[in-house]
Simulated assay, not measured.
Amino acid sequence: MQFDRTFKALPGEVVEIRPGIRRITAPNPGPMTFTGTNSYLIGTDRLVLIDPGPQDDAHRETLLTAVGSAPLDAILVTHTHRDHSPLAKNLKVATGAPVIGAGPHVFARPFREGDASLDVAVDQDYAPDEVLAHGARLEAGGSTFEVVATPGHTANHLCFALDGAGALFSGDHVMAWSTSLIAPPDGDMSSYLESLQLLLKRQDTLYLPGHGARLNDPLSFVEALFAHRMGREAAILGALECDSLSISSLVDRMYEGLDPRLRGAAGLSVLAHLERLEALGQASKINGSDTLWRAGSVAFESRD
């Protein structure tokens, strides 16, 4: 699978993707956000904004300038991470547009001892005016959007399909530059894989993600992404069948040449796969250990 890391974005630049769709990238580049968060303005006479982005004054002013005098009918939010949703509240005050889309942040499972703190990632202040469910249709800004629920990266993650355009605003669910981080307890790997399968049943021809470049052949990319995840899972299980291993040891084996800044994210991804394998009865923690994992279920282990 080929990732596109050649994408460049200048903060404050308004880029027309096609008539009626503009992209504005926030000035928040980093190892988890690539060149920054992509906000999208859809429409001409009336507008819809998708993913307002982080709480950043410069990005706020760029968005308001791009909106200009056109009515902003809605602020749509794909999910409630702090690089996507916090500016919604501020822009609602400035424009009067309702905040619509993902529900308030929820975790995929309860916190457990040893879980990483996710306070820096989660927008707990997000307060939508309307929560949309899978299959809902929203008419706003002179366009019609179909809601595609894609839990996995977060439990409340949504994509938005633009009727008549073949375009899907894919948030952090599918991105051209990288795999999506699945970080328990915030995310869930089984849900993520099921959501990828859901997208493969659709006929969208263009993905506009929350970070990085557009995807012009999205279904082939999603197929490759699914295969990549399943290959990673098979490699983890194969390693556990040879030895009992910690997550740190699995990261060393699975991620050759890993950027040290991404080691924590890689560990969370491995944990997500391990929790999925545990739910399937294919992996478990060693009795009395919080750090070592082995192949096989607890029930199988107890019969040894």
Rank of each mutant, 00 (worst) to 15 (best):
T62R: 02
T33P: 06
S302V: 09
H157C: 10
A265L: 08
A149F: 07
L271G: 12
V15K: 11
P209S: 05
A165R: 10
M175T: 01
L225S: 03
R276F: 09
D45V: 09
A70Q: 15
L271A: 15
I24F: 01
G12Y: 00
A136M: 06
E16P: 05
L158S: 11
L41W: 05
H228Y: 10
H81I: 14
T65L: 03
G96A: 12
F7E: 01
L258G: 09
L162D: 10
F226L: 14
R294F: 06
I182G: 10
A265V: 12
V131E: 14
E139W: 07
P98Q: 12
V120I: 07
G68Q: 08
V174T: 06
N216R: 09
L237D: 13
T154L: 08
R303M: 13
L219T: 06
L76F: 07
P11F: 04
A94V: 14
F107N: 06
A9P: 08
D73K: 03
G135P: 03
G36F: 09
G267C: 10
D252T: 13
K201H: 13
A140C: 00
R109W: 02
P29K: 08
R261L: 13
V270Q: 04
P184V: 14
H81L: 15
I286G: 01
A167Q: 04
Y40W: 07
H81T: 13
F107A: 07
H211V: 05
D115W: 13
A102S: 10
P19H: 02
H105M: 08
F34M: 01
V131S: 09
S170I: 15
D123L: 04
P98N: 13
P86N: 11
V15W: 10
L198R: 15
A140E: 02
P151Y: 06
V106A: 03
L208T: 03
L237W: 12
L245P: 07
L49T: 05
P218I: 04
G152E: 04
I100S: 05
P110Q: 07
A108R: 02
D186P: 00
L64V: 04
G43P: 03
G53I: 07
A234C: 08
L240F: 01
T150P: 08
L91P: 02
L193D: 09
A127F: 09
D163Q: 13
A108S: 12
L138E: 06
L240Q: 01
P128F: 05
N216V: 12
D290M: 13
G296D: 02
A94F: 11
S69N: 13
R109N: 04
K201S: 14
